[in-house]
Design a protein around this nucleic acid. Structure first.
Lengths: 152, 152
DNA sequence: TATGATATGATACAACATAACATTTTTGGG
DNA sequence: CCCAAAAATGTTATGTTGTATCATATCATA
């Protein structure tokens, strides 16, 4: 079974477990994110569904579906880009770590990595110094991927 | 001289040094950010100029002025919030560090702190592992400030 | 099959942002 | 001092992201 199918079936499982439904439309949106190299905007997902499935989903519904997928921890929102990505760890069993996203400023390619406990502790300590408590931090860092670096 | 005046005069100096002009309108926008507890959107700055100076600046101009102020390193954009803040270190002489912003999810209060060399190195190393080079990273972390924590 | 809960549709609009072109203001050389 | 070039700002239109509200459809089950 390839990565895409694995992710889809893991998503099914996740929803079954939480007693929610992974409907056709929700699957289509998730599939768009899984198949894409880049993070996609809600409106790009509207286009994807039109092109791939000849299905017209209103933007409103896409936003709702994205909210649902985020609540199931299947999708992340990149707030710096106003775009969405499938969680890279859908197929993992272990608890999700605090996610960190590296976003290529050139090609928009995104890598999701975990943050080590010690790094989080450092961030927490620094935050505390100025009177803040981290809640559910998520790091988004703009960088350049090696593919794009090599091109220049 | 109070903090506000210090910041303004440091901004003047900075612009003089780089051979650019800190016009009235640019000063007004910067003053809005300096006086505000929170990060402000471009449109909130339009309102500020109307209220404070009875001056109607089109949104377009505010965006241009914000671009200018950012290029002079007097202002930062918080991409997660689509809002803008005055740099906390306008009055410092030393080189600007990579900035990190703690943003209160409740009251929108923002604290800017520097990131230690060692923390940056760690981030850099982690990025490299997945094929990315940091360029000019900026961390934005959503958290809760103690004032808001105490309220609940 | 009726009922309530969940999911989706339709319409309108708010908030953030930029493109393209026009006008005004500033500045420095003749 | 005046003119030309450069810089700053104005005007208008439009693009992009996101939400509010109310209507309708679909599903799960008693």
């Amino acid at each position: 079974m390839n990565q895409y199918d694995k992710a889809m079936s893991a998503a099914e499982q996740q929803c079954a477990q939480s007693g929610s439904r992974l409907t056709e439309k929700r699957k289509h949106i998730l599939s768009g994110l899984l198949k894409s190299e880049k993070a996609l905007s809600a409106y790009e997902l509207v286009d994807f569904c039109k092109n791939e499935y000849n299905e017209s989903i209103p933007a409103m519904s896409v936003y709702r579906i994205l909210d649902f997928l985020q609540s199931e921890r299947l999708v992340h929102k990149l707030s710096t880009a106003n775009k969405y990505v499938a969680c890279s760890h859908i197929t993992c069993k272990h608890e999700h770590e605090v996610p960190q996203f590296l976003i290529c400023s050139e090609c928009q390619h995104v890598e999701e990595i975990g943050i080590s406990k010690s790094l989080i502790e450092t961030l927490q300590k620094n935050a505390k110094k100025v009177g803040f408590e981290l809640v559910s931090p998520q790091l988004e860092i703009n960088a350049i991927c090696h593919t794009c670096l090599d091109k220049t």
